[in-house]
């Protein structure tokens, strides 16, 4: 464990908590893409199956349980409790175009052809594009509430910090996983446009307006 990875995990946790609090306090999931949240739940489910039979550390186990519980909790709030406030008209990204290629790629490019490894690889590929429905929805609605942009900033920062973690581990000549690194770079690049707008607009108190 290193400071970059710890900050990355905490940024990830912060993002999820910001989202849960936003939905819970405002009792509304307006502006939030249920499809992206659905993809994140798939990512965590496919990746954390080893939860039940490999123990890496207490931290690892606790965080996996928290991520699984909060992602399903978010789905519950969006699709059941506050379903009336879900903006399905603007949440229209075709997620089958993300899931199917991720499955195909995981079957073609992986470290080991075992069920667990293929599922892990699938979750890595899917996570790299899971935010697209949310970014698409923000561009369709043309704007995002500031709390939503804080959520996106924390979520985008998590994988950017993981890239610093991989650089740090490379200097320590620790074992690295090329699949996770390439996917993590793609994932972070998808946020660049948003990062620019967040840093130049939201932090100056302006509303986040994405060019439609």
């Amino acid at each position: 464990m290193n400071i970059f990875r710890l900050l990355g995990d905490l940024s990830h946790l912060l993002a999820i908590i910001i989202l849960l609090l936003k939905i819970w306090n405002s009792r509304s999931c307006a502006g939030i893409s249920g499809r992206s949240q659905f993809l994140f739940a798939i990512v965590f489910t496919a990746r954390y199956l080893d939860l039940f039979f490999t123990f890496i550390s207490l931290y690892n186990t606790v965080m996996k349980i928290v991520f699984l519980a909060t992602s399903y909790g978010t789905l519950y709030l969006m699709y059941i409790k506050f379903k009336a406030t879900y903006d399905s008209n603007h949440d229209t990204f075709r997620i089958e175009f993300l899931i199917l290629p991720a499955i195909a790629l995981a079957l073609l490019i992986n470290e080991e052809f075992t069920v667990i490894e293929i599922l892990w690889t699938f979750s890595i590929y899917l996570e790299s594009v899971a935010i697209l429905p949310q970014l698409f929805m923000v561009s369709k609605t043309g704007e995002a509430e500031s709390i939503t942009s804080h959520y996106l900033f924390a979520l985008g920062s998590y994988r950017a910090l993981y890239i610093l973690n991989w650089i740090y581990r490379w200097f320590l000549t620790e074992k690295l996983n090329a699949i996770a690194i390439v996917a993590g770079i793609v994932q972070t690049i998808l946020y660049c446009d948003f990062f620019y707008l967040y840093l130049t607009k939201v932090l100056k108190g302006k509303k986040l307006q994405l060019p439609a």
């Binding site: 990746r47 080893d50 690892n60 965080m63 080991e112 993981y162 996983n177």
Partner: peptide, 10 residues
């Protein structure tokens, strides 16, 4: 035989 992939990262 690739080393058993132990994914220690979240």
């Amino acid at each position: 035989e690739p080393a058993e992939e132990d994914h220690d990262e979240l």
